[in-house]
Simulated assay, not measured.
Amino acid sequence: MSDTMAQTFVLSRSSYKHSSKNEDLIIGNEFQILEDIQSATELAVDLATDNEEHFNLKYLSSNWGYKVECTPRGLRIKGHLGTDWNKIKNSYPNIVLNPALNILTDKFIEEATNPFFPLSHINFNRVPIEMAKEACRRLNSIGQYVYQQLNNGEQKEAMANFRRTAMQNFDSCADQVAALLGKHAKLLVIRLDLYATSSLDNLPDKLVELCINKFIEQLRLSRIVPNVLDYICKREFGFKRDIHYHLIIFMDGDIHQQDITFAGILGQKWLDICKKHGQGLVGTYYNCNQHKDKYMRSGIGLVHYADHQKILGLRKAIAYITKPDFFIRYVADNGTRNLRKGIHPYLKKSTQRGAPRKYTKKEETTRLILTTRDDSQAEALAN
């Protein structure tokens, strides 16, 4: 159970976490929005691997009391004690934290509301004698509770379900893009992030959904930019940006090359739709193509099926907008899905009889780079 959780976490984080040494991991400007959630999830996953005590007391003197010493994992527990997880959960009723994080934060909330004293108020360098043993017991109980909860059958199944959804999203989108590249040697790939703000305390979900529906309808019919072959649209939730949308749009690369211009036209259309139909919503957008030169492997702009470095970058873009569901998931009141795709007739599985199509070596490598779940395997194939 813990191995599966750890593998899933690494797979998800590698596509979402900012890395100053490897800027090709950054596709968009939302890479830090779930930093606390990612860090706490990683902690929960690690705590589930053993049942060790991570805190102990060192006696100083009768006047100074005790000092609380901790292992590296204990230090990470300490770092999350001050986060107001109760406020986060109560303020955003439409978000669902992954089961590992949910268990850990429930324990943090319990300790934060303890009538004796909140653990976040402890001075680890000087704990009074009368509360030292109780403080150490409660600190150790956090890791022990997470270990016990995440290693029972019910929570294993809950984690498997969360993992399954995130991986299925990646698989379906990767297969979709592989099918496109099997039909078109060159794609013009546009990455766009769409946001909306409101003067109201809470962003009106229904109005945002109305606007994105109108945008997608016009996009699908090629009324905003021409020759749209397909698209992927992912609704996401961020504590700073609330509901927003990540899009990857595919145009015919044999006909068009002006990706920055088209991305700007698409962004402006989002602003116009929000102004016309949003009843006070103000739309904003981030044009990823305008900044693609910052990244070693952007995977956006003009992408040829045989350019495996760009294909690797495109895979990272797909992973970026699908795998963060492992950490946090937005659940709409109307039950609409977070991921939507435009499947054109020629991309549907053929019902005709006969032998399956044979791929060239380069085409097969391209397909494998896109569709493998293993980051290191994708890197090896691209190189």
Score class of each variant (00 low, 15 high):
288 C>H: 05
238 G>V: 00
373 R>T: 11
49 T>H: 08
284 T>V: 12
127 V>K: 02
135 A>N: 02
198 S>F: 03
347 L>T: 05
272 D>S: 10
282 V>D: 13
7 Q>N: 06
99 P>F: 05
144 Q>R: 11
287 N>K: 05
321 I>V: 04
273 I>M: 00
314 L>I: 04
40 A>S: 11
169 N>D: 14
114 N>K: 02
17 K>G: 02
253 G>I: 00
364 E>P: 12
19 S>K: 09
339 L>R: 03
323 K>N: 06
99 P>H: 07
66 Y>F: 14
191 R>L: 09
250 F>E: 02
263 A>D: 00
128 P>G: 04
320 Y>C: 05
221 L>T: 15
235 R>G: 13
157 E>Y: 08
188 L>K: 02
126 R>E: 09
238 G>I: 01
219 L>Q: 01
101 L>F: 06
157 E>I: 08
185 A>V: 11
345 P>R: 15
364 E>L: 12
216 I>K: 08
377 Q>F: 10
277 H>S: 09
218 Q>W: 14
40 A>I: 08
127 V>I: 06
328 I>P: 00
25 L>R: 08
77 I>M: 07
379 E>L: 07
299 G>V: 02
49 T>S: 07
302 L>T: 06
236 E>C: 01
325 D>A: 09
133 K>M: 13
76 R>T: 02
207 L>R: 13
23 E>K: 09
362 K>W: 11
266 L>F: 04
77 I>N: 02
334 N>K: 05
100 A>M: 06
196 A>D: 03
40 A>H: 06
130 E>T: 09
354 G>L: 07
228 V>I: 04
250 F>Q: 03
245 Y>T: 02
208 V>N: 05
316 K>S: 14
223 R>G: 05
241 R>H: 13
46 D>F: 15
271 L>A: 12
62 S>M: 14
146 V>Y: 10
240 K>H: 05
249 I>G: 00
264 G>V: 01
47 L>W: 01
355 A>K: 10
254 D>E: 09
20 S>H: 12
289 N>M: 08
192 L>E: 00
185 A>K: 12
146 V>Q: 12
288 C>I: 06
130 E>D: 13
170 F>P: 01
164 R>C: 09
126 R>G: 08
361 K>Q: 12
144 Q>I: 10
138 R>V: 00
336 T>D: 13
176 Q>R: 15
80 H>E: 04
123 N>A: 12
31 F>P: 05
243 I>Y: 11
16 Y>G: 07
208 V>I: 13
329 R>D: 07
32 Q>P: 05
103 I>V: 10
121 H>L: 08
153 G>H: 14
109 I>H: 13
47 L>D: 00
308 H>D: 04
45 V>M: 03
36 D>T: 11
110 E>Y: 07
101 L>D: 01
211 C>L: 06
102 N>D: 12
111 E>T: 09
